[in-house]
Design a protein around this nucleic acid. Structure first.
Lengths: 246, 246
DNA sequence: CGCTCGCTTGATCTCCTTCAAGGACAGTGG
DNA sequence: CCACTGTCCTTGAAGGAGATCAAGCGAGCG
């Protein structure tokens, strides 16, 4: 059984080299583990969290509800990722964090992280970097939703989730779990569920990718990348098996 | 004459309390000052900058060029702001930073900032927070460009720039400089210049705001806020004169 | 067995894009 | 001093990507 701290340490290691001593220090952090049912808000708009969340299993998303009740999803979070590091230094949540499917979460107190930050410059650097990579992803989502036509947007999102899943070792045989509904994807891309559905069907017909029943299968990665014009460099990951295909 | 370091220290102070000693340390940082003509790239995609930029005068923007040559603007930066703090801990630029109009810039070496970060936890916290607020702004731009109809988007952008200008003391008598072209705004909102123009005309007719000749005049702030459904809390600013009108 | 949730399909509508051109203004050079 | 040129703003007409409205379908589940 991998501990919460070790999960976080591994995640940080995807962004840069974490010296063994620092890895150990992060891995040794004490955490509370909690299971949450799907559709549960883990953090809410206005909250002042005192803990950092680590996803152990399941899938989370960050969202806001607009004036007319429209949901905009701003991020998805796979297992091993840490969705709320920004709460360390920002006063309050200006969005919500919720479980897409039943999830197991680790909670590490801010106090413990602050100690790591004070005492371990290398770990601090990677924690900080993680928040900066988050920002880079937000920028990419901004570009995607502002510019690209629906079929490129959709392909781009699938590319991103696939690469991120691969980075944490969740891809097997060209497949990974992606238990979203089409409505989730629609709300992420700023499209309607109807149009997302039609776009998805068109994408299926290209033979590049299949996504059905919560499982994503990439049948033709070069083709999918081409459709989306996907360039993973904004994820700032260390090289992995897919790296050659960037 | 206010130094580059002091400008940065003041900017950081808008996000939280910077103790006098830390303020002094930041203010004492050595910097190079350079004037750049308009349309000049200050940092380019792929660069590994060794300096942090501080805007002393003028206006900068961060942008990428899409596959079909389409420009997407991701941020604007007013005087006193620090556009590139993220380069401290991220390997390379995945976008460009350029001058919208002739600008005077300060450059502070990363090495000096690293010392501040190592030695002054309070300054470090505000530097980090600044990068997190940037991320919060990216999220808001994502929401805006994904969801909102053109007139709300435009009003929202004008609200944001006005509040940010106010935060750094650049608003006088309901006016501030905003020397953008309509094409800049279009590329920020993900609209065409033509439609931006028409939308702007409609917005003028509401009597809430005027923006012409590079100057923004807010004639009816409550009305403008209402049109945009603007809530400035995502900017995470300390209270200012406009704060009551959040 | 009925019910809900998620997926799918069809028809119509609209906001925004695209294409095209004209006009105001400032800077530049003869 | 005036033509010339480029930049930015403005206007018109037509076309399209995606939204909206409405309904049916299949599967899991209490």
């Amino acid at each position: 059984m991998i501990s919460v701290g070790e999960t976080l340490a591994r995640h940080l290691s995807t962004f840069g080299k974490l010296p063994a001593k620092d890895f150990g220090a992060v891995a040794a952090l004490k955490a509370e583990v909690r299971d949450v049912p799907r559709h549960t808000d883990v953090l809410r708009n206005g909250d002042h969290p005192a803990h950092v969340v680590v996803v152990l299993s399941g899938l989370l998303h960050r969202y806001t509800i607009g004036p007319e009740g429209k949901r905009q999803i701003q991020s998805f979070f796979l297992p091993n990722e840490a969705p709320s590091l920004e709460t360390l230094y920002i006063n309050y949540m200006d969005n919500n964090l919720a479980a897409v499917v039943p999830a197991r979460l680790g909670f590490i107190s801010h106090d413990q992280i602050y100690r790591i930050i004070d005492e371990r410059p290398e770990a601090r650097k990677l924690l900080w970097r993680q928040t900066l990579v988050q920002a880079a992803i937000f920028r990419q989502w901004l570009v995607r939703n502002s510019n690209l036509p629906a079929h490129m947007s959709l392909a781009h999102l699938l590319c991103e989730m696939f690469v991120r899943a691969d980075a944490v070792g969740l891809v097997n045989d060209g497949r990974c779990a992606l238990p979203l509904t089409q409505e989730h994807v629609a709300d992420a891309l700023g499209l309607t569920a109807v149009h997302t559905n039609r776009t998805l069907q068109a994408l299926r017909e290209t033979g590049a990718v299949e996504w059905r029943g919560g499982e994503l299968t990439v049948q033709d990665w070069p083709k999918l990348r081409e459709i989306a014009r996907f360039d993973s460099s904004y994820l700032h990951l260390r090289p992995t098996k897919l790296a050659h295909a960037r």
